[in-house]
Design a protein around this nucleic acid. Structure first.
Lengths: 248, 248
DNA sequence: AATTGATTTCTAGTATGGAAGTATGGTAAG
DNA sequence: CTTACCATACTTCCATACTAGAAATCAATT
């Protein structure tokens, strides 16, 4: 995994500091160690790590680019709330992209990649009894493998940025996600890819990526303080327009 | 248009400098005023605009995030060549996203938006005789309108980032793009949306966004110095795996 | 007591100085 | 003529100092 390597919590002074700090703070925010609305200042972080403000500032700017921090000039910097709309947007984009990835795969199935995916699914089942975060890592790996198998590693880089918004929800309420179901869905996707069933594979990946729509309203209702909700309260995103995967 | 506003070439010292400089340099790179491979330094740019190196540095970091600059620690900063692979990746992602956008639109056509799109197409035809850059602006506006009509303005923000890679190609060789054809394609897309023909609308937007595949090899062969080509020379991207829009 | 005003104390933004590392050009040795 | 070496002139990166502006605190006034 290119990102998120190494222990999270310390900085190696020999390596460039700003990118390290960026990953570290990003990890803290996505895992809700830094809570939405919490104010942090460049000075404070600089003191905590014994570095100057400059690399902190650069990390802040990059985090603001992912909508994880809001920098208010001359006023302060706050951890963004989880934008309900942004989560839905990110999910929509992921579905669109991964649907096409799966179409590529199923239109020309590669036995070597199929074997790799099945091995990963086996690992996912083994991780079912362990901590849920372990499954999430394997889940990421699975989806990244899909992209890689389709020759779209560049696409995964983009998805990683989108995923940060969705991950904040994921780590906010680990209990809500039906891991066994998700693994079954992974298996169904690979089955349809192996069978060369383009429409079927597409339908399954789209359904898979719509799972979060069921849980999001529940989680948002549980922790409204963490969310930036649209006017009118929590909408029912399941009623969002159908976007594909349902052709005859 | 949120980005690229104001005159390009001067900085307002009253406003935050770093974001202004970012947009300005981005414009120069995308329009190939700064050529691929050209070396620039923080000091040089700082002198040119009479500012300090720090905001320059921050602009550089953001440009590196869009793969427009490559910052080599302690060695220098160069304008990235146009990555052939990145252009293909960006195009793939755009197709996936806009295909789903068009599916939303055609599954529930809105007369008001249809009228807006038709008006824009008329404006495009008027701009056919003028400079080609004027058409490009209208083309962007059209696609942005599609996203907005589907309630996916957030998606357009992402596409804008992807588009910078494709725009570099576009501005590199204005002559190659068959503007009348593109406008006809726009019209066909809107026709299918209005008719509620989901599969047809999807097929047309995908074909539309594949136009660049025809021109890219030609442009790359004309200006190989501007491109970062994969090993083995210029591939034929038209033979890339089919990714959708061709169901029965 | 409530309100207005000045002051103090925070913030991010910018400027500048120094440290570490790399490429380059010249010089001396083989 | 070729090669190894060293000094120099760059580069980015980090640290520090300073500026401008916003918010909060406290005092004076009504």
């Amino acid at each position: 995994m290119p990102l998120e390597t190494g222990p999270v919590g310390t900085l190696d002074p020999l390596l460039p500091i700003a990118p390290q700090l960026f990953r570290l703070l990003r990890h803290r925010i996505v895992h809700n160690d830094l809570r939405p609305g919490h104010r942090i200042s460049e000075t404070e972080i600089a003191r905590e790590f014994g570095i100057s403000r400059q690399p902190v500032r650069e990390a802040f700017i990059k985090l603001a680019g992912e909508d994880l921090l809001a920098i208010l000039p001359q006023r302060g910097t706050v951890v963004c709330k989880i934008s309900y709309a942004a989560v839905l947007d990110a999910r929509f984009l992921r579905e669109a992209i991964e649907a096409d990835i799966v179409r590529i795969l199923s239109s020309a199935p590669d036995p070597a990649w199929i074997a790799e995916m099945r091995a990963q699914i086996a690992a996912q089942r083994s991780a079912m009894t362990g901590p849920q975060q372990a499954f999430f890592a394997l889940d990421d790996s699975f989806h990244r493998t899909l992209a890689g198998a389709a020759g779209k590693n560049g696409a995964w880089r983009l998805i990683e940025g989108l995923k940060s918004q969705m991950d904040r929800v994921r780590f906010l309420s680990l209990a809500h996600f039906p891991v066994p179901n998700l693994i079954d869905q992974h298996e169904a996707i690979v089955d349809r890819i192996e069978a060369g069933d383009v429409a079927g594979a597409e339908r399954h990946i789209r359904d898979h990526l719509r799972e979060i729509l069921k849980d999001l309203p529940v989680i948002a209702a549980e922790s409204p303080a963490f969310f930036d909700l649209p006017a009118g309260g929590i909408p029912d995103p399941v009623n969002a327009p159908v976007t594909g995967g349902d052709h005859p």
